[in-house]
Simulated assay, not measured.
Amino acid sequence: MPSVTLATKKAPPKPEARKALPINAEYEEKAKALLRYAMAQKGVGIEELATRLNDMGVEISAGGLANKISRGGFSSSFLLQCMDALEVNLAALPR
């Protein structure tokens, strides 16, 4: 069996930051817009949503929530927690 020398071995590709990929940035914008739309439809502001999340056991300040929404890079579980706090019935959404 031939031996592999270090000179012929290729280094693995460097991982690209997830946020740097255009497709991820596009969907982060969509998630942010969806959450803001739901808040507007329910007439709930940042302070109220933060209070509702805290009541559910999700510890977050109003400032932290505003930053998280502004960045848009939150998890799907956080989005679902917000939708639950806003009393959005996701099961009723069209498929």
Rank of each mutant, 00 (worst) to 15 (best):
S76W: 10
L49K: 00
T8P: 00
I46D: 05
S61K: 08
A40H: 11
T51I: 12
K30R: 14
P94Q: 09
R18I: 12
A38P: 01
P13D: 14
S76L: 15
E16Q: 13
P13L: 10
L90I: 15
P13Y: 06
K10S: 14
S70P: 02
A33G: 01
L90V: 15
P13N: 09
T8R: 10
R95I: 12
M56C: 05
K68C: 08
G43C: 03
L86A: 04
E29D: 10
E48I: 06
S61H: 07
L93A: 11
G64E: 05
R18M: 12
M39L: 04
T5K: 09
K14M: 15
P22H: 05
K68W: 00
K32S: 04
A62F: 03
V44I: 14
R52I: 03
Y27S: 10
S70C: 07
S75G: 07
L53M: 07
A17D: 14
E28Y: 13
A25E: 05
A25W: 00
A40V: 11
R52M: 04
G45V: 04
M83Y: 13
L86C: 04
S61Y: 06
L53Q: 00
G57R: 01
S3N: 12
E29G: 10
G64D: 05
R52C: 02
A17G: 11
M56A: 09
M1S: 14
P13H: 08
G63C: 01
M83R: 12
I69T: 05
S77H: 15
Q81Y: 06
N67V: 08
E47V: 13
N54E: 11
P94I: 08
L49H: 00
C82T: 01
F74S: 03
A20T: 07
T5L: 10
I69S: 03
A66S: 14
M1R: 11
R71L: 07
A11P: 01
R52Y: 02
M1I: 08
A85L: 05
V58L: 06
I46V: 12
K68N: 08
A91G: 13
P22A: 12
F74I: 07
E59M: 10
L93N: 07
P15C: 07
K32D: 02
N54W: 00
C82Q: 02
A7R: 15
A66N: 13
L65F: 02
G73W: 10
A17E: 14
G72P: 01
E28L: 09
K68Q: 11
I23C: 07
S61M: 07
T8L: 08
